[in-house]
Simulated assay, not measured.
Amino acid sequence: MESDIYQVYEDEIHSLEEEIELLTQKFENKQESTFYSDEEIQISVKSLQGESTQHESPPDLKAELDCLESDLSFLMKFTGIWFTNYSKETVEKTGNKTIQKHRLSGNCYSLPFQMEFQLLEIQSNESISAAVTDLSIIMECGEYSDLSKFVSSAEERGNLLLFFRSLSSFAEWCEHRKCTFKHFKKLAGVYLFWILGW
């Protein structure tokens, strides 16, 4: 019985030695296949040095990021447009043409919105032209029938800048209207209280 146990251990040891030898051969073959000549190494180093001089990163990325976040915060406060969700997906990239699908949602003052569109970028010589296609805007227009017409018109035109400018003005006007209505409602309550003599 004891000799059987030794035999099992010896077989296991022999199996492991074979596996180690096989792995060693694979490693040595891989080492040989990934060997580069001095010339190839020098070319790689030169190309990396060229890239590093062309694309040097700013000395303080955190400061630049803080500055960009500050600018974004100012713009959101100034326009009343707050983005809550954003995603981008590359649909097609061939030669000088790129199509990306963008999805975003947010609020403009108290008006929530969602939109999805494709951005077609075409690079020619030294310029890039971009066009918005397949624009879809989802908004609860509710009591504002004019807003529904405006959204449909913006979808047809695909002009995002015009859409956001107009939406910002409209939403700001709605906020002023609500404040004015609250003020008159409060005054009407005081006036009614005074007339009835309560």
Rank of each mutant, 00 (worst) to 15 (best):
Asn159Lys: 03
Glu17Gln: 13
Gly197Gln: 04
Val190Ile: 14
Arg165Val: 14
Asn125Ser: 11
Ile13Trp: 07
Thr98Leu: 06
Ala63Glu: 13
His176Lys: 09
Phe35Pro: 02
Ile41Gly: 02
Gly80Asp: 00
Ile137Asn: 02
Gly80Gln: 01
Gln42Trp: 03
Phe27Pro: 01
Glu143Arg: 07
Cys141Glu: 08
Phe184Trp: 07
Trp198Glu: 11
His183Thr: 05
Tyr86Val: 10
Trp194Ala: 13
Arg165Glu: 13
Lys182Phe: 07
Met115Glu: 02
Glu21Thr: 12
Pro112Asp: 03
Ser168Asn: 02
Arg165Thr: 12
Asp38Phe: 06
Ala63Gln: 14
Gly80Asn: 01
Glu116Met: 11
Ser148Arg: 10
Glu12Cys: 06
Lys101Arg: 12
His55Asp: 07
Phe78Leu: 10
Thr94Leu: 10
Asn159Ala: 09
Ile195Trp: 04
Glu140Lys: 11
Leu147Gly: 01
Glu143Gln: 08
Ser127Arg: 09
Phe117Ala: 00
Val190Thr: 09
Gln114Met: 10
His183Asp: 05
Asn96Met: 08
Ser127Leu: 07
Tyr6Met: 10
Gly50Leu: 13
Val45Glu: 15
His14Gln: 15
Lys26His: 07
Ile99Asp: 01
Cys67Gly: 04
Asp38Trp: 04
Glu126Pro: 00
Glu155Val: 02
Leu187Gln: 13
Lys185Cys: 07
Leu192Ala: 11
Glu2Trp: 11
Leu111Gln: 02
